[in-house]
Structure formats: C-alpha cells, structure tokens
C-alpha cells in the first residue's frame, strides 16, 4: 500500500527523516509522518472495503434477479444506449487518469499542475454526470422509470428488429431490471457527486499550497476513492449494458 515514497526537493528535510523537525501537518497523536501516512492510507482501504460491501448488496440482488428473469434483463439492457455508456466509460477512465496525474503533481510539488489536473477531473466528472442525465432523461421519455408510469410496451412490441418480444408477464419483470439500474447507477452517481464536491474543496486547498509541501496524503486518499468509484462503474457497465447484447 505504501508504494510511494515522499519525494524530496533538494535541500529540504522531509518529516520523518529528521526526528526534530515536526511538519505543520503532523497531528499531535502520531509519532511520525510515516505513521500518519500509513494510518490514513490503511484507513482509506478499510473504508473502501465497506464501500465494496455497500455496493455488494445491490450486486447480489442483481445477480439473483438476473438469474430468475433472464429474458427481461436482456431486453432491459438492450434499451440502454451503448454509445453513451461507452463514452461515459471512457470519460470516467480519463478522469481516473487525470486524478492519478494530480497525485503525481502533488508528489512533484507542482502546484499549478495539481490544480489543473484536479480541475480536469472535476470537468470529466461533470461530463459523466451530464451524459448520465441525458440517459436518465431518455428513460423518462420512454416510460422506463419504475413506478406508476412504467410502460412495458417497448418489450411486448419491440421496435428493434433484433429484439425478441416478451410475453406481458416477463415484460413486467423489466421493472425490476430498471429498479436495479437506477439504484445502482444512482448510488454510483451519488458517489460521483460527493467526490466532485470534495474535489472543489481540494482545488481550494491546493491553491493555498496545502498539498505541495510534502503533505500529499489527502490527494492520495482521494485518488483511491475516485479510482474506486471508477472501478464500480467498470463492473456496472458490462453488467448493465454489455451482457447479452443482441449485436
């Protein structure tokens, strides 16, 4: 976990090397910067473990219902826009890259570069949410949002020539698919929104030189969180969009 070493600028002592220098960011209850970093990083991994369990509940529900109502899930995933989905995947992976670059910039103590990459991550995050909003809107137009206005018309009499029409009882089950689709992507989007809010805060802190004087831990930990959110999408995308595409 602790693969990075603190980069040293020439002529400067870094906390942990000299026991008498106490960097301002070292909290009183830690013995050394190294201990503080290890603790924070370890804590973040533990937190991500709880996040895995959090999403795990929904993945479990998805697997069970997919197994039961396979035709409905196939039909449901075929109504999703694969172009938008793929674009979004690319956007999100891009944002992970800019985030990784932000961590690198913080290590290299390049303030303006750090701010640039954090801002780029924000922009890509908003791009993702924007595209997601377009997709959600499409579902709204199609009456594919679970609830009283849900319509099974598209599944009983599909407009897509490749699609296999479903019998009405199976078509009803597409509602379960869309419930899970909205619950899972919605939870994912919520994580994105929380992440973007934190990014705004970090841009402000970065402009005050908070992360470019050796204290890169917050950037690093946020990077872990952002990559985790990315990875959740890497699982959601194939499960919701790709499996059993008609072609």
């Amino acid at each position: 976990m602790d693969s990075h070493s603190v980069a040293t600028a020439p002529g400067e002592l870094v906390g942990g090397v000299d026991p008498h220098s106490h960097p301002s960011f070292l909290r009183h209850h830690f013995e050394s910067v190294g201990q503080q970093r290890e603790a924070a990083s370890f804590g973040m991994w533990i937190f991500l473990l709880t996040e895995v369990m959090f999403f795990g509940g929904m993945f479990c529900a998805y697997l069970i219902f997919r197994n039961w109502y396979h035709p409905a899930f196939v039909a449901g995933s075929n109504t999703l826009d694969i172009t938008l989905g793929t674009t979004n995947t690319a956007v999100l992976i891009g944002s992970s890259f800019t985030m990784a670059m932000a961590v690198y910039s913080a290590e290299m103590r390049r303030r303006s570069q750090l701010i640039l990459f954090l801002t780029l991550t924000i922009v890509l995050g908003f791009a993702f949410l924007g595209i997601k909003a377009v997709e959600y809107h499409q579902k709204f137009v199609d009456h594919h949002i679970p609830g009283p206005n849900f319509s099974i018309q598209e599944f009983v009499h599909p407009s897509n020539p490749h699609a296999i029409p479903l019998s009405p009882d199976m078509a009803q089950k597409t509602q379960i698919y869309f419930s899970l689709y909205f619950a899972m992507t919605g939870m994912h989007a919520l994580h994105m929104i929380i992440g973007i809010s934190l990014l705004f805060f970090m841009v402000w802190r970065a402009s005050q030189n908070a992360y470019t004087e050796g204290h890169i831990m917050p950037v690093e930990n946020f990077g872990l969180y952002w990559h985790f959110v990315d990875i959740v999408w890497i699982f959601l995308f194939p499960l919701l969009y790709l499996i059993s595409r008609y072609r």
Partner: peptide, 14 residues
Amino acid sequence: TLDIGVFDPSKGGD
C-alpha cells in the same frame, strides 16, 4: 417512496 419493486412479490421482487 418510489415503489421500485425489488422486495415486492407482486412485481416479481422477492
């Protein structure tokens, strides 16, 4: 609130 049906047997939920 939204009646999503995952736990509702009448909608195929469990």
